[in-house]
């Protein structure tokens, strides 16, 4: 009995140990992407290898004005609610864990306000700021300057950028971008439509509680890339506002759950796709195809006219939980 129990327990330990050794994260190699650029257009050829399970994959091509692939900083300052601080910390963990699984070498670091000078000195950097950060008014000018020279400011919800105000600018007299946030409900998805970019990227941040007015976004020169809620007035979940060389990427909401397990989980999913495909610098055409395959290989191809942007970004990405695959090609069109 004594020996049998030891043998059984040892077998259990070996099973778990071998599982740990074998089931390590790995980048899939089941996607192939070939990009051919001609004078007037780009052709995207792709291959999705057949797998044991259904694989839904989107192939996308978009024209962008710039390639921006710098370090990601996530600001956690005193002004944030405790649960938002926790969510932002976990968002950094998500990004660091998952970016490598998408074949990217980008990393995310958490900083306090004392780290902002370092961020503002790197025009390839991305700064993520949470809802209610309410940075003091004096950050407005350096922040705007940094963005105009190339930085990417990712603001989540109200109070996430010192140069942005909602409803009134009493607390932020130097703010220049007005974006009113309105509380609304998901209502089972009624009156909600996905923008072409949201469909192309299969964005998951579908149900934040506090959304911004699309009319404000458009007045600031921005465009919606997320989901749009018709609630008497049109509201958005994600948008981009070009500012000089850089951009403001704004998300709605206050990082409270749901959807899915946590808000930061879906925000990270969306943010990674947006960053890796350079969506904040999208300034021309965009085309995508979504297909699925089970068992056999799938070959697809499409062409897109070029309208004169500096770069074309082509991506091939899995939308299926049971298939990890991501490829991206960044090609300069004009020197």
């Amino acid at each position: 009995m004594r020996h049998k129990l030891i043998i059984l327990l040892s077998l259990a330990a070996v099973f778990l140990a071998v599982s740990s050794a074998i089931l390590v994260p790995s980048m899939g190699s089941d996607l192939e992407l070939t990009v051919t650029v001609a004078d007037d257009g780009v052709t995207v050829d792709y291959l999705v290898a057949g797998g044991q399970y259904r694989r839904e994959v989107t192939a996308i091509a978009l024209e962008v004005g710039r390639v921006h692939q710098g370090p990601i900083y996530i600001l956690i300052n005193e002004g944030l609610e405790f649960k938002v601080k926790v969510s932002l910390q976990r968002m950094a963990d998500h990004l660091n864990n998952e970016l490598s699984l998408l074949g990217s070498d980008l990393t995310a670091a958490v900083i306090g306000t004392d780290g902002l000078p370092r961020v503002f000195s790197d025009h390839q950097a991305t700064l993520v700021v949470g809802p209610g950060a309410d940075l003091p008014n004096y950050y407005s000018h350096p922040a705007t300057q940094w963005i105009e020279k190339g930085g990417l400011w990712v603001g989540i919800g109200e109070g996430s950028a010192p140069f942005m105000y909602s409803h009134d600018k009493t607390n932020s007299p130097n703010a220049t971008v007005r974006l009113d946030f309105i509380h609304t409900e998901y209502r089972d998805g009624e009156g909600i439509a996905a923008t072409p970019m949201a469909k192309a990227l299969a964005l998951r941040y579908v149900a934040p509680e506090s959304l911004f007015l699309l009319s404000d976004l458009e007045a600031a020169g921005g465009k919606s890339i997320g989901y749009q809620f018709d609630r008497g007035q049109m509201l958005g979940t994600a948008g981009i506002v070009p500012m000089g060389e850089g951009a403001l990427l704004v998300f709605a909401g206050n990082m409270s759950p749901p959807p899915l397990a946590t808000s930061e989980e879906v925000l990270s999913w969306d943010l990674m796709r947006i960053l890796l495909l350079n969506v904040p610098w999208w300034d021309g055409n965009m085309r995508y195809q979504t297909n699925s395959t089970l068992g056999s290989d799938y070959r697809g191809s499409f062409s897109m006219d070029l309208s004169g942007s500096q770069y074309v970004i082509c991506g091939l990405m899995s939308n299926s939980d049971s298939f990890n695959g991501f490829r991206v090609e960044r090609t300069a069109v004009r020197s």
């Binding site: 599982s19 994260p25 899939g28 399970y53 998952e98 397990a261 939980d321 049971s322 298939f323």
Partner: peptide
């Protein structure tokens, strides 16, 4: 949902912590 995600992530070849939804020691996923 986290159990689903952890198990499906493992089937996808990115281990139980691929999308960080599963947040326990690995035994159950295996």
């Amino acid at each position: 949902y986290p159990f689903y995600q952890g198990i499906v992530d493992t089937l996808a070849g990115i281990g139980p912590y691929g999308h960080m939804a599963y947040s326990y020691p690995p035994g159950f996923a295996y």
